[in-house]
Computed example of a mutant assay.
Amino acid sequence: MDAHLLQLLVTRVMPYGKYKGRLIADLPGHYLNWFAREGFPPGEIGRLLALMHELDHNGLSSLLDPLRKR
């Protein structure tokens, strides 16, 4: 896993939709699950959403806590 991608989860904001402006790391699980069912968008935002879904689904979201403090 690329550490740079983890840092992006706590710095990039959702560019559109119901949670526009919220950090990717702060998106609710049900929203990430919806993308997993319907398909992640192409490009970087899709890769970040997919990564965040995996972290959230596997109960690993707390791994991002040290990155938030930087």
Rank of each mutant, 00 (worst) to 15 (best):
M1C: 06
M1Y: 06
D2H: 10
A3C: 05
A3M: 13
H4G: 10
H4V: 15
L5G: 00
L6R: 09
L9A: 13
V10C: 04
V10Y: 06
R12Y: 14
R12I: 08
R12Q: 15
V13M: 05
M14P: 02
M14N: 15
Y16I: 02
G17W: 04
K18P: 01
K20E: 11
K20D: 03
G21I: 06
R22K: 11
L23W: 01
I24M: 06
L27D: 02
P28K: 05
P28H: 07
G29M: 05
G29N: 06
Y31V: 11
Y31S: 00
L32Q: 03
A36F: 14
E38H: 12
P41L: 04
P41R: 04
G43N: 02
G43W: 05
E44Y: 02
I45R: 01
G46H: 05
L48M: 12
L49I: 00
A50E: 14
L51A: 14
D56Y: 09
D56A: 12
H57T: 13
N58W: 09
G59K: 10
G59Q: 08
G59M: 05
L60K: 15
L60H: 09
S61G: 14
L63R: 12
L63W: 10
D65W: 08
L67Y: 12
R68W: 08
R70I: 12
